[in-house]
Amino acid sequence: MTATRVCALSELEQDAAIRVEIEGVPMAVVLDSNGVVHAIGDTCTHGDISLAEGFVDGETLECWAHGSAFSLRTGRPLNLPAYEPVPVYAVTIDGDDVLIDPTPQKEA
């Protein structure tokens, strides 16, 4: 599938997440403290909660409701109560444009 522009890089705040949708698929887009942009599924697998409303800490995004933290690189939960991963999406930066391929990445 083709990558879709979701926002401008300049719209992202460091260590914060925003919620975007591509073709009805919700995603959390994060600019981490190292300046890397990540995109993961926006719905916590423990509860139907938007992860974009959570807390960014390094390379993790923590659900505000129950505290499950997800790896921004792999989508895997790092603690309970969540035990299922969220999808991870490929991000491309083109100038000031943030592009996301809505096809979930396969783990290496």
Rank of each mutant, 00 (worst) to 15 (best):
residue 64 W to H: 14
residue 40 I to W: 05
residue 42 D to R: 06
residue 41 G to F: 14
residue 57 D to P: 00
residue 55 F to P: 00
residue 39 A to G: 08
residue 40 I to F: 01
residue 42 D to C: 12
residue 49 I to N: 08
residue 72 L to M: 13
residue 37 V to N: 03
residue 70 F to E: 07
residue 47 G to W: 06
residue 58 G to R: 06
residue 44 C to R: 10
residue 61 L to V: 02
residue 51 L to R: 09
residue 37 V to C: 04
residue 58 G to S: 08
residue 58 G to V: 10
residue 58 G to K: 10
residue 48 D to L: 07
residue 37 V to G: 03
residue 72 L to W: 08
residue 58 G to Q: 10
residue 73 R to Q: 07
residue 59 E to I: 11
residue 69 A to Q: 14
residue 61 L to Q: 11
residue 70 F to C: 07
residue 43 T to I: 15
residue 51 L to T: 11
residue 68 S to R: 06
residue 61 L to R: 07
residue 51 L to I: 07
residue 64 W to Q: 13
residue 45 T to Y: 09
residue 38 H to E: 01
residue 49 I to T: 14
residue 42 D to P: 09
residue 37 V to S: 01
residue 56 V to F: 10
residue 56 V to R: 04
residue 72 L to N: 07
residue 60 T to N: 08
residue 48 D to E: 12
residue 68 S to Q: 04
residue 70 F to R: 01
residue 53 E to Y: 07
residue 47 G to Q: 15
residue 60 T to S: 12
residue 49 I to L: 05
residue 70 F to Y: 15
residue 64 W to S: 14
residue 39 A to H: 05
residue 59 E to M: 06
residue 37 V to P: 04
residue 65 A to V: 00
residue 62 E to W: 04
residue 48 D to C: 12
residue 53 E to D: 15
residue 38 H to G: 03
residue 71 S to T: 06
residue 68 S to T: 12
residue 46 H to Q: 09
residue 71 S to C: 13
residue 71 S to N: 14
residue 70 F to M: 06
residue 65 A to S: 14
residue 71 S to H: 03
residue 49 I to M: 11
residue 57 D to A: 15
residue 57 D to F: 13
residue 71 S to P: 07
residue 74 T to M: 03
residue 69 A to Y: 04
residue 58 G to L: 10
residue 58 G to F: 06
residue 40 I to T: 04
residue 46 H to E: 01
residue 62 E to N: 06
residue 47 G to E: 15
residue 37 V to R: 05
residue 42 D to Y: 12
residue 38 H to K: 01
residue 66 H to Y: 01
residue 59 E to K: 10
residue 53 E to Q: 11
residue 45 T to P: 12
residue 70 F to S: 03
residue 50 S to T: 05
residue 74 T to Y: 05
residue 44 C to V: 09
residue 40 I to L: 07
residue 49 I to R: 05
residue 48 D to I: 08
residue 56 V to I: 12
residue 67 G to Y: 08
residue 72 L to D: 11
residue 38 H to Y: 11
residue 44 C to F: 10
residue 72 L to R: 03
residue 53 E to S: 03
residue 37 V to E: 00
residue 52 A to W: 03
residue 36 V to G: 00
residue 51 L to P: 10
residue 38 H to D: 02
residue 44 C to W: 01
residue 66 H to L: 07
residue 74 T to V: 05
residue 66 H to F: 05
residue 46 H to I: 06
residue 74 T to N: 04
residue 46 H to K: 07
residue 38 H to R: 02
residue 42 D to E: 11
residue 47 G to H: 03
residue 50 S to H: 13
residue 42 D to H: 12
residue 37 V to K: 03
residue 73 R to A: 12
residue 60 T to Y: 02
residue 66 H to I: 09
residue 38 H to S: 11
residue 38 H to I: 08
residue 52 A to S: 15
residue 49 I to G: 00
residue 65 A to P: 00
residue 57 D to Q: 14
residue 43 T to D: 01
residue 39 A to D: 13
residue 41 G to K: 07
residue 48 D to A: 11
residue 49 I to D: 01
residue 42 D to N: 15
residue 47 G to D: 15
residue 64 W to A: 15
residue 58 G to H: 12
residue 48 D to R: 13
residue 55 F to I: 14
residue 41 G to V: 14
residue 73 R to Y: 14
residue 72 L to S: 04
residue 71 S to K: 12
residue 53 E to L: 05
residue 60 T to L: 04
residue 51 L to Y: 09
residue 61 L to E: 03
residue 61 L to N: 05
residue 49 I to F: 12
residue 37 V to M: 04
residue 41 G to P: 05
residue 45 T to M: 08
